[in-house]
Design a protein around this nucleic acid. Structure first.
Lengths: 157, 157
DNA sequence: TATTGTTATACTCTATAACTATA
DNA sequence: TATAGTTATAGAGTATAACAATA
């Protein structure tokens, strides 16, 4: 019975489509940043630093990266002159991570590059359709986030 | 100027949303299969074997896996009794890969599990919206495929 | 004792190259 | 010489655990 049942391909299912399209998007974004000498993870971290200075643990909580990875990313960003680390005066265990002027400029450039890459990726869709897609994906993502609430972020000085 | 420019978060851009939602889908699908002792890659390979027997090279062409990975996946599927390998009579370099009765049954079960996982993933959307999302993603994927055409597949015996 | 950042280690994935047997 | 399958190896990426400094 089961072996006789009509077997359907998973390939054209929505879940697979999401994964496939993401599989196109990830390398496209990475490619968009190579001319800046950056990767998406570094840019993601920079994005959380532009308004406030955060500890490494706080950055981990926001980006979802674990702390060992964060050490490596911040080493890279420090090397590039895009961020700085210094001991917190209120809690000497913590590092206050700050974005530099260069880092802000790099982030602005990266954002433009990424937007252009996204533009290219979404080119097959009309503006109204892109908005539709965005809204639908937002609903999916927000629903999943509603299940796993995070504790409020705490900014260090 | 650049450092003064309004810096926007990439987080709520469509490209990032696609990647994030895929980041939810991938583990959801893997989880859906653990009770069957399978992973998505194995199921993907099985899906291409239900109608025809293919050589390993052909399976690589269809799944996008490279041949070293395919060796490992087929080792696993053979171990599980879901597929068999035998030398092709027409070209003794090739292996004819066949899905077994058990393999077909496992694939049918896996398909159901994956559909249920997808159902759960898309639960926040109404049926019409799911269809919309599917159509939009299809357009994005098809557009990218149009650029890189594949040679016609050749079935072995 | 718990937390922050760091380092070291191991484990998985992937990509490459080399090897065999066949053509 | 080229192809199909296999094996070995090296690299990136990730996860885990242990460690020093501080709370």
């Amino acid at each position: 019975m089961t072996s006789r049942a009509r077997i359907e391909h998973m390939d054209d299912h929505t879940g697979y489509l999401i994964i496939k399209v993401a599989g196109m998007a990830v390398p496209a974004f990475e490619r968009a940043l190579v001319s800046l000498g950056l990767n998406t993870r570094q840019v993601r971290v920079l994005g959380f630093l532009h308004g406030e200075s955060l500890s490494q643990a706080e950055l981990c909580a926001r980006t979802g990266l674990d702390r060992t990875t964060m050490v490596a990313v911040l080493d890279e960003l420090e090397q590039l002159g895009h961020a700085t680390r210094e001991r917190s005066k209120s809690d000497r265990r913590k590092h206050v991570v700050r974005i530099t002027r260069n880092g802000k400029a790099a982030y602005a450039k990266a954002t433009k590059k990424l937007l252009r890459a996204q533009e290219e990726l979404l080119q097959p869709l009309a503006p109204a359709e892109r908005a539709q897609l965005h809204a639908l994906l937002s609903r999916l993502f927000d629903a999943s986030q509603a299940c796993a609430p995070e504790p409020a972020a705490e900014v260090v000085s």
